[in-house]
């Protein structure tokens, strides 16, 4: 079989561009939702207008929309007919290049010594069929990541337990996570499956519910409950605490019901490139 060759130098260059653009311009669906906010609170309306203005200034002046340019996460779908020699190094080099002008936010967990180039990148590989290499970037800041949680529920907890877990995570951490939030929920698998799914769930377009009818119902129910908490834009009190609840599932053990909740701030910075 003929394998498709992808040049790692091209990957590095394209990723560097993608990272920089993402760090400047957050997901446009967030800005649009904030522009259309419907609230009785003057403070919430002002906060939403300030975030919209921020995103306009960032784009116009090529400034990073948030000073926490995050840890660099990558979700790589590698087709089994693709060869890209040095891919891992190319991704890390793209991070080094792109973060030269951004904030270096990565440090040793014990000594707190900074790595000074924002590496290592955090990379998840998935092997797929075909001849496409697709790389998705997500910048994750500490403010929202710190407020994420894992609940090891049991089967008896059921859907009610899942709803309560997500609402609990937002109640406990939502105010610190820069609302309005995008809430990623991973249900099933083992611990790391649930956590990975909760992160991947953030990548789904805002406003698009799960294709599974029962999961879509859960998403709607949780979103309603979360927005009734009163946290609001910038946690100053109000109606718009979350823009979306996205749930991804995977089969789990007969004795388990892991639920991971990943909170994402309104500075939702992600994008994909295909080779």
């Amino acid at each position: 079989m003929n394998m498709k060759q992808v040049d790692a130098a091209v990957v590095q260059r394209e990723l560097c561009k993608l990272i920089t653009d993402c760090l400047i311009t957050p997901d446009k669906a967030v800005t649009k939702a904030l522009t259309q906010i419907n609230t009785d609170s003057e403070v919430e309306r002002t906060a939403a207008a300030l975030i919209v203005e921020n995103n306009i200034i960032a784009e116009r002046q090529r400034l990073y929309c948030c000073q926490d340019t995050g840890q660099a996460l990558f979700f790589v779908k590698l087709g089994d007919e693709v060869i890209c020699k040095g891919l891992n190094e190319a991704i890390n080099n793209a991070v080094k290049d792109a973060y030269k002008n951004a904030r270096k936010s990565v440090a040793d967990p014990l000594t707190r010594k900074n790595t000074n180039d924002n590496t290592p990148a955090i990379i998840e590989y998935t092997l797929t069929d075909g001849d496409t290499l697709e790389i998705t970037f997500l910048a994750k800041g500490a403010g929202s990541e710190n407020m994420s949680r894992l609940y090891m529920l049991i089967p008896a907890d059921g859907e009610k337990g899942i709803v309560n877990a997500v609402v609990d995570a937002v109640e406990k951490g939502g105010k610190n996570a820069c609302p309005p939030l995008i809430i990623g929920v991973g249900i099933g698998g083992v611990t790391e499956t649930a956590c990975s799914l909760s992160k991947r769930a953030l990548l789904r377009p805002i406003g698009q519910n799960s294709e599974r009818a029962d999961v879509a119902e859960l998403e709607k129910e949780i979103l309603k409950k979360v927005n009734a908490l009163g946290i609001g834009v910038a946690a100053l009190g109000g109606k718009l605490t979350a823009l979306a609840v996205n749930i991804e599932t995977a089969p789990t053990h007969i004795g388990m019901l892991p639920v991971a909740v990943n909170l994402q701030c309104h500075s939702l910075r992600h994008g994909s490139v295909k080779f």
Binding site: N54, Q61, K104, C178
Partner: peptide, 26 residues
């Protein structure tokens, strides 16, 4: 302050002077 409004806050800064702990970077 409004979390995530970093470019907006940048536009309010008139002066910036590094005064301590330069080894800490940001």
């Amino acid at each position: 302050a409004i979390g995530g409004a970093a470019a907006l806050y940048q536009s309010t800064v008139r002066k910036c002077e590094l005064i301590a702990y330069p080894d800490l970077g940001c």
